Amino acid sequence: MFSHQDEQEWLRREREIDRAVHDGFGTVDRPGSWTEESPFALCQYFLLRLGGRTWLGRKLVPEGRTDPSSVLTPRMLMGEFDGMRFTREKVVFYFTPRPAAEHAAVLARAAKDHEADIDFPFPRLDSDWNEALVPAHVWDGSAELADHLDPDEAHFRAAAAVVLRDVVRPGDTVYDPACSTGRFVSSLGEAFPECRIMASDASAAMVDLARRRIPDAFVADGLGTPVAEESVQVLVLRFLNAEVLSADTAVAGFRSLVRLIAPGGHALVFGHTPVLPAVRHLAAECGLEVRSAVAARPGTEDEVFQFYLLRRPADAASTTSAPAHA
């Protein structure tokens, strides 16, 4: 991925940026630009599409964190997006800042508008501008990793209980093919006790942790076909993300895994790091409906995050073929 020295330099710079943009990324209503020379930071930029307008934002890393949160706040919204230019040495973003109150209102509306979408155009890159992935052994399960991951997904667990409340039925199968510690999918079992909870992970160590909550958790390659096609009413996809998979692998994984969704069933797509596939495009390609794409952190209106709820129409058959290109 990148060296410890590189990581420390990135974090130092992020702290400086966080302090420097406390009052915004430029002068309100005056076109501005922002140059990003660090390939490590490009995955922090996002585009928010809402009501025919596109907004540019950048995740910030405040004191107390060593990585960007999955939650986007009004301070991270830079302004209306006017374009960008990319070279091997830098990316220049063009935008027009708007008043802070308007930025907050935009995020609040996005959480309520089912057509709103958040896109992260860049994966995590290393110093050579190649995709950077967390080494596989990091995901191999430890109490320390569990302690880090579980608290940082509380907003995901709360959002899932809300969006699924009106769509799950007694006896439905809820399946997480990359369950990690099992904390997320077991929370769905607590919210919907009449559902059947299934969980698997490619890491045997993670499955051992998950079995404390889900005794039947099993080891399986989450990118394969770990259960029968069209057998799942709620599919949890929370690993098609930057740093976890390459962009091409994430796209292929999406196309393969959505075949598990039964007619009338749903999928949740989200993660600690940005979702890599262009979900709306792929959902349409695979015959799925996008019911919503943005959720708000519980107790807030203008702190939002990627959280896709997809549905396979009840009268639709699975898309069993996939194009050869992304």
Score class of each variant (00 low, 15 high):
Pro170Val: 06
Pro39Met: 01
Glu303Asp: 10
Leu237Ser: 03
Pro99Leu: 12
Glu229Gly: 06
Arg12Ile: 10
Cys286Ile: 02
His22Ala: 12
Asp302Cys: 11
Glu36His: 07
Gly26Ile: 02
Val92Lys: 08
Pro39Phe: 01
Met206Ile: 07
Asp150Met: 04
Pro62Arg: 10
Ala41His: 05
Glu153Thr: 08
Asp113Gly: 08
His155Val: 04
Ala100Asp: 10
Lys90Trp: 08
Arg85Val: 13
Gly182His: 01
Phe156Gly: 04
Leu60Phe: 00
Ala296Lys: 04
Ala111Glu: 00
Pro62Ser: 07
Ile261Val: 10
Ala100Cys: 06
Cys195Leu: 07
Leu149Asn: 13
Thr181Asp: 07
Tyr94Gln: 10
Trp139Leu: 12
Pro313Asn: 04
Ala132Gln: 07
Leu42Pro: 02
Thr35Trp: 02
Val162Leu: 14
Val258Lys: 03
Asp221Ser: 10
Pro123Thr: 08
His281Lys: 15
Ile197Phe: 01
Pro97Ser: 08
Asp140Ala: 14
Glu194Gly: 05
Arg12Ala: 15
Ala295Asn: 02
Arg169Phe: 10
Ala262Cys: 05
Gly141Ser: 05
Thr54Pro: 04
Leu125Trp: 05
Ala278Thr: 08
Glu243Phe: 13
Ala228Leu: 10
Gly26Cys: 06
Thr54Val: 12
Val163Glu: 00
Phe120Val: 01
Ser33Lys: 09
Glu194Arg: 15
Ala252His: 10
Asp248Phe: 07
Ala252Asp: 15
Ala217Gly: 04
Met206Trp: 01
Val61Ala: 08
Ala217Arg: 02
Leu11Asn: 03
Ser256Gln: 15
Arg238Phe: 08
Pro170Gly: 09
Leu257Cys: 03
Phe122Gly: 00
Gly287Ile: 04
Arg238Thr: 09
Lys90Thr: 08
Ala111Gly: 04
Ala317Asn: 09
Ala322Phe: 11
Ser292Phe: 07
Arg12Asn: 15
Leu107His: 03
Gly171Asn: 11
Arg212Asp: 15
Gly26Glu: 04
Gly32Asp: 06
Ser200Gln: 00
Met198Phe: 06
Gln8His: 12
Arg280Gly: 05
Glu289Tyr: 07
Pro151Phe: 06
His103Gln: 11
Gln8Asp: 13
Val168Tyr: 04
Arg53Ile: 13
Arg65Tyr: 11
Val71Gln: 05
Ala159Gly: 05
Ala210Thr: 06
Asp172His: 08
Thr173Phe: 03
Arg15Pro: 01
Gln5Thr: 14
Pro193Met: 06
Ala160Val: 03
Ser246Thr: 15
Gly57Tyr: 00
Asn241Tyr: 07
Phe93Ser: 07
Arg53Asp: 12
Glu190Asn: 13
Leu223Ala: 13
Pro215Phe: 14
Val304Phe: 01
Arg311Trp: 09
Asp113Gln: 11
Pro193Asn: 12
Ser3Pro: 04
Asp140Gln: 14
Asp152Phe: 08
Asp302His: 14
Thr320Gln: 12
Thr300Trp: 13
Pro151Ile: 08
Ala317Gln: 13
Arg109Asp: 11
Thr54Glu: 12
Phe86Met: 13
Arg291Leu: 15
Gly265Cys: 00
Ser3Glu: 04
Cys43Asp: 14
Glu36Phe: 05
Val275Ser: 02
Leu48Ile: 09
Trp129Val: 11
